[in-house]
Design a protein around this nucleic acid. Structure first.
Length: 405
DNA sequence: CTTCCACGGGAACACTGGGGTG
DNA sequence: CACCCCAGTGTTCCCGTGGAAG
């Protein structure tokens, strides 16, 4: 009798090092990003000469290498500072995690060994703790704010304070690097903050298929054993990812998943067919993952759209219809329905997530509505919604199916 | 030109969970 | 301990607005 794991280890003839395909892996070489790296290094080099670097704003869609590039340059800069003895450090803050003024300052204060609770104090107190901690010695501190648009959308006070903090410091100096995937987010800011933050701007354009191919080839060399990738695999991964946004993360995910599928099916090589399966599975995972993590009320709104599809046998509905159905569902679930205003917000969120499609149409004499339709297959959302035990009662809503031809 | 409707921005409010203070 | 202060979140309330049918 063979050991249960016999096959599983012997089949590992595909991946030599899967790690390099993960999105968190920071490579040593960045194909097609030399310009951006150079620009970033140029500005930041001031820190090594004892000057204060200009603030930088970095723009680019997801998967264009913004974060990896900044992290790579940071590492190099800190290494050089170590060598020359320059007092210079780089902090990285993901503003999606620390997404309010209070949380950012509390985190920063803690970095400088101040004891600050993550909730409870007045903000200006936290701010001054951070400031005294920072100012304790002469140094240059570069603060990287990733996803800075998330922070800006909740008021520009945090950015305002950070951008003018240098005038209140005796010893230390601060420069900022803001990373955003939204080109327009600066419109929300006070003009003074906007100009201070954007002293230098670096754009990361999306990759085209050719460039994605270079990236994939560069990593595939270490990720896979020789000759396991069929000729068309990488071009196909690149083409599929390029047709979306030129998202390198997606391209790498695709390649990794293709390999995993090949491995699991016991194949010796990765074929185009594996890539197609991976692509399908990736999209499926995306949808179910998003639906699963939706807040309850959003799920109910989504269910309402789904139920309307079932009941009416058509695709698009007015916001009024959706709200009525939402009401019915809430009654069925014995919950207090929210107002129409609130529900329109959920609809917009679902639209942004790509689960439904909503367009505003004007019906002239009969006012304005949003036309709402499901933009993912019904069979993708239905099982996931059903999983939520709070939504079980929905199953008992009768859908009067009328066949209209 | 009017008229109608929901859209969507913004203010106001309620509530939560933590802090400090007397 | 009771009490008030504070940031943050989710919600409701109010209201100006867009734009084609009538």
């Amino acid at each position: 009798m063979e050991n249960l794991f016999e096959d599983l280890i012997n089949d590992g003839r595909i991946f030599a090092n899967k790690e390099v395909l993960r999105p968190t892996y920071i490579p040593e070489r960045f194909p097609h990003r030399w310009e951006q790296i150079k620009a970033l290094a140029d500005v930041l080099s001031a820190a090594l000469k004892g000057e204060t670097p200009s603030n930088i704003l970095i723009f680019g869609k997801t998967g264009t290498g913004k974060t990896s590039t900044v992290k790579y340059v940071s590492k190099e800069l800190e290494a050089m500072a170590q060598k020359t003895g320059a007092k210079c450090s780089i902090l990285y803050i993901n503003s999606e995690v620390f997404d309010t003024q209070y949380r950012v300052f509390a985190y920063l204060a803690r970095v400088f060994n101040k004891r600050v609770p993550m909730i409870g104090w007045p903000t200006d107190m936290v701010y001054s703790e951070f400031k005294t901690g920072l100012d304790a010695e002469e140094r240059c501190v570069i603060i990287t704010l990733d996803e800075v648009d998330k922070l800006a959308s909740k008021g520009d006070e945090a950015l305002y304070n950070l951008s003018r903090i240098n005038s209140e410091l005796e010893n230390a100096r601060v420069s900022l690097i803001g990373i955003s995937n939204d080109l327009t987010f600066t419109d929300l800011l006070d003009p003074r903050v906007k100009s201070s933050l954007g002293e230098e701007e670096i754009i990361f354009p999306p990759y085209n298929a050719e460039q994605l191919k270079d990236i994939l080839y560069a990593r595939a060399g270490t990720a896979f054993y020789a000759d396991v990738l069929e000729y068309a695999v990488i071009p196909l991964c690149a083409a599929l990812a390029a047709s979306e946004h030129g998202d390198a993360r997606r391209a790498l995910d695709l390649l990794r998943l293709s390999g995993e599928i090949a491995e699991r099916s016991g194949a010796r090589t990765v074929t185009e067919e594996h890539v197609r399966q991976a692509s399908e599975k990736l999209e499926m995972n995306r949808v179910t993952e998003v639906v699963k993590t939706l807040p309850l009320q959003s799920k109910i709104v989504l269910s309402s759209v789904y139920l309307l599809c079932k009941e009416r046998n058509k695709r698009r509905f007015s916001s009024g219809e959706v709200y009525n159905m939402y009401h019915r569902v809430c009654n069925q679930l014995d919950m207090d329905p929210l107002t129409q205003r609130r529900v329109t917000d959920f609809v917009s969120e679902l639209d942004i997530l790509g689960l439904i499609n909503a367009v505003i149409v004007s019906k002239g004499r009969y006012g304005r509505t949003k036309e709402i339709s499901l933009s993912v297959p019904e069979e993708c959302v239905q099982p996931v919604l059903q999983e939520d035990y709070k939504l079980k009662a929905i199953a008992s809503i009768r859908v009067g199916k009328q066949t209209t031809f």
